[in-house]
Design a protein around this nucleic acid. Structure first.
Lengths: 342, 342
DNA sequence: CTCATTATTTTACGCGCGTAAAATTATTAT
DNA sequence: ATAATAATTTTACGCGCGTAAAATAATGAG
């Protein structure tokens, strides 16, 4: 690296002996300049470390290369993992992703969409809070900015949605549980998320299809501290002996982790082995579910497929002219993950 | 909101009947304009929703209002929580924080610092990977950009550091464990993070001070999938009966969660109650530690104090001229969290 | 070697805003 | 009321780059 620091593209272009607009072209797409020019620029790049000013670039480009990723709760490992997968693919495609977390708050979600507008993203991947989301804001946002919803759908909104098929995964789990023991009851909290709702409905349908009577247990609780809700709700139900069956299907893994903890706390052994009086199953294959005691039987969502398809759909949307034509809804199947808890 | 959409500050200023630079002043600090002017602007703001272009702003400002937050692994709830706390405080101070995760990769860490430069942040809060970090890059970065290190220090670098005092927390835990049962051995993995190192040293010192012989058990494993390492390492040690004592202090909670899982898997009961043959303690008070089975006895780090002090220190650094004078190293005490596992 | 095709450069302009300095207005002291 | 001073607004300029159009150079076919 040489002494005199390069201040802008003008100076750098001079050092490279090439005109500024050509250098500009290079940075937008190295293959768009002659190979001899390219190597001259790259040689200069090694000598005088220079990087185009991000703000100047984005101010002038018709469309930025930014991608917004919005998840309801990054502290939830499921979303941490999802957003990471998505980020990677965006980067691979030459975009600059940035992730935002609504932290379970609709206000925050609106706030994020607002900030997002100000960075003029090429597109947005949004996993909305669901029920509590400000529908109008999201609807308006989807109209203005190419957006793909994932994980949780907001029905009736003009936007593509990529997620899991709860009506495949839940019956599969119910079927498994019924084959291997008593039919399960369904343990849920107030459905902040539409998936929770669908899962309950899918559970009821599946039970009825198998000729069993469905039992839904709803516990109080709000926010996104699901483990906490699962624990305290579970404690109450266990103390009062209100579980109608010895097999419990939870609406998601985090709730199950809480319930697992409550069972342990109450001296109830969970699992399939001798002495166990309770079976607990979850949904999602949360990254920590392998390490619970006992390890959690659950349904894995196809993280890779969902993230890949979401990104792919978004890119198609960005590139297309006709924003409305491409609308699609894709649901992936879950897979049964048999572990020790059920 | 009226029909004609405002395209820039010029247009908006015209609508408000005020010159553009005055409007600019308003957005930078509403109190810097006369109250009569302010109310006129705010009235116009209600009519024609307008937001200044972020890129234009940052291109022209001497210093942006951006704050970079870098953590080794966002999927780790500890860092998820930390970064969230930090974000909040930055926002409250009128800054725009954005969080990046190194995902345990030094390459990624360097990459992030590089990207960070291009957004010309006012300051950066960096929780480095530690051992594996590219020291030179970080050193150079700290010289150029106001940076405060937190959680893990890189000793010898000219930068402030805010963290926990392992030499307070670990002896406290060792002392507790010795009082309530047999002296603990120390379960660790290769120390990717300097804290792990310090904790081992602190453990040895504390044991010797109490007249016990220290036993350090190191298991193989790399990366940041600590639970995985704890589980497989724990399984091996348990199978081979190589735990020298029935009390195990783990270098962090995630490792402990893995070990807990291994113990369960091996049919070993963990805790203080009858029939338990193993005690396991962790460090950090990981958000999920309350829900493990049994719940995990650990040392809580003072999240709030660390994040607050880090932000405060950074702001002081940003505002000061003499970048070197303010260097400080602050260590907070941990607190014993007695739960069921030890 | 000439003409048609690309690839590149030059020219020229604008993006939306920050900011120093100059001009204006409001405020206070006399 | 008037001059002096402080507060505010306007003027004027530039930031670093994208981009379209026109001019030029390099390449290839015949």
């Amino acid at each position: 690296m040489s002494e005199p620091k390069i201040r802008n593209m003008e100076e750098f272009a001079a050092k490279a002996g090439i005109s500024r607009p050509t250098v500009s072209k290079y940075f937008n797409d190295p293959d768009s300049v002659r190979s001899s020019t390219r190597s001259r620029i790259e040689k200069a790049l090694e000598q005088y470390d220079y990087r185009p000013n991000l703000y100047a670039i984005n101010q002038n480009r018709r469309l930025t290369k930014n991608i917004g990723i919005v998840v309801p709760y990054v502290a939830d490992p499921f979303f941490a993992e999802m957003s990471r997968k998505i980020e990677r693919q965006c980067i691979a495609a030459g975009f600059s992703p940035s992730t935002f977390s609504s932290h379970g708050s609709p206000k925050q979600e609106v706030e994020i969409l607002d900030t997002l507008r100000s960075i003029r993203p090429a597109g947005v991947l949004l996993a909305p809070l669901g029920r509590t989301s400000d529908r109008k804001t999201i609807e308006a946002f989807c109209k203005d900015v190419p957006t793909v919803l994932f994980d949780a759908n907001i029905e009736g909104i003009e936007a593509s949605f990529i997620g899991s098929d709860n009506f495949q995964s839940v019956p599969m789990m119910v079927d498994y549980l019924c084959r291997t023991g008593g039919p399960p009851c369904f343990f849920e909290m107030p459905p902040v998320n539409p998936n929770a709702n669908k899962r309950r409905i899918a559970y009821v349908q599946a039970m009825e299809a198998l000729g069993h009577e469905p039992h839904v247990l709803r516990v109080d609780g709000q926010g996104w501290e699901f483990e906490d809700v699962g624990f305290s709700g579970g404690m109450t139900l266990l103390e009062e002996g209100r579980f109608p069956s010895s097999t419990v299907l939870c609406s998601n893994d985090r709730l199950a982790i809480g319930l697992l903890s409550a069972a342990y706390h109450s001296g109830i052994q969970v699992g399939l082995t001798d002495g166990c009086t309770l079976r607990i199953a979850g949904h999602d294959d949360h990254p920590f579910s392998r390490f619970t005691c006992p390890s959690l039987t659950t349904v894995s969502q196809d993280y890779a497929a969902i993230s890949e398809r979401s990104v792919k759909t978004l890119f198609a949307l960005i590139e297309s002219e006709d924003k409305t034509a491409l609308q699609e809804e894709v649901l992936f199947n879950g897979q049964l993950v048999m572990r020790a808890s059920a």
